[in-house]
Simulated assay, not measured.
Amino acid sequence: MNRFSKKTSLRTPELSTASLPDIVFMLLFFFMTVTVMKSTELNVLNELPNATEIKRLENKDRVIEIHVGKPSFKYRSILGDEPRIQLNDKFADISEVAPYVLSQIQRKPKHVRAFVVVSLKVDKRANMGLISDIKKELRKINALKINYTTYEGDAFKNIE
């Protein structure tokens, strides 16, 4: 009458780890192809000033960087000693700042665009007239969130 007998020792089979290396290498190749390396070469001498009251920016994906400083030694014979503006990997005039910032904002996702911060990385020996001109260009396109990148330290060390 009883055709099916009950097994007394039911064991769960061991977990097979044979496909684990395949999964690891698949993830490795995925991240290698998706990851973008930022390769901006600094073409200006940029010794940042010191400041005591500083705050770290939380979201780096919302930052647009503008470098200002004297051209590096390999460009000095061509461009001279005056401080220059560097946008990404090229030198730019003051009239190119607004279109550059607008194009960088358009590349950001829509939900981030309202929170974009323009970070000015200015050499401590750059003249304030150039920085004022950059700020006027940013005001024209309503990019009013500006950050000055500095090192933490004694601000009196900036005086030469």
Results as ranks from 00 to 15, higher is better:
52 T>F: 12
82 E>V: 10
75 Y>E: 09
11 R>F: 02
70 K>H: 07
92 A>Y: 02
101 V>R: 10
68 V>G: 08
22 D>K: 08
39 S>N: 02
14 E>D: 06
32 M>G: 05
9 S>W: 04
82 E>Q: 12
30 F>I: 13
92 A>F: 03
86 Q>I: 07
93 D>M: 10
7 K>H: 06
33 T>Y: 05
11 R>G: 00
102 L>S: 15
19 S>M: 14
62 R>F: 13
73 F>I: 15
64 I>G: 04
69 G>C: 07
88 N>C: 00
40 T>Q: 02
103 S>V: 04
102 L>N: 15
104 Q>P: 05
90 K>Y: 05
89 D>Y: 00
99 P>C: 09
10 L>M: 03
36 V>T: 05
27 L>V: 11
58 E>G: 03
18 A>C: 09
101 V>M: 10
12 T>A: 01
43 N>S: 07
100 Y>S: 06
31 F>T: 10
99 P>Q: 04
82 E>F: 05
37 M>W: 04
8 T>V: 11
38 K>Q: 05
22 D>S: 08
63 V>Q: 14
65 E>F: 14
59 N>S: 09
88 N>R: 05
47 E>V: 13
15 L>E: 00
52 T>M: 12
65 E>S: 13
102 L>E: 15
18 A>M: 07
8 T>N: 09
76 R>T: 14
16 S>A: 02
95 S>D: 12
26 M>P: 01
24 V>I: 15
75 Y>C: 05
37 M>D: 03
37 M>G: 00
100 Y>C: 08
35 T>W: 01
72 S>E: 12
36 V>N: 01
45 L>D: 09
20 L>D: 09
19 S>G: 08
90 K>G: 01
16 S>G: 03
10 L>T: 05
35 T>I: 04
54 I>G: 08
88 N>D: 13
36 V>D: 04
75 Y>W: 14
65 E>W: 11
33 T>I: 15
40 T>V: 12
106 Q>K: 15
13 P>Y: 00
70 K>T: 13
8 T>K: 07
57 L>R: 09
91 F>D: 11
85 I>F: 03
39 S>M: 00
107 R>T: 09
66 I>T: 10
59 N>T: 04
74 K>D: 11
28 L>D: 04
34 V>E: 02
75 Y>P: 06
8 T>R: 07
67 H>P: 01
16 S>M: 01
81 D>H: 05
42 L>G: 00
34 V>N: 01
29 F>I: 15
73 F>L: 15
45 L>F: 06
48 L>S: 03
49 P>C: 03
61 D>Q: 15
91 F>P: 14
48 L>G: 05
14 E>S: 04
48 L>K: 14
92 A>M: 02
40 T>W: 00
101 V>L: 15
80 G>W: 11
14 E>W: 03
17 T>H: 04
67 H>D: 13
61 D>F: 13
83 P>T: 08
65 E>A: 14
99 P>S: 12
34 V>S: 02
19 S>F: 13
48 L>A: 05
78 I>G: 00
7 K>V: 14
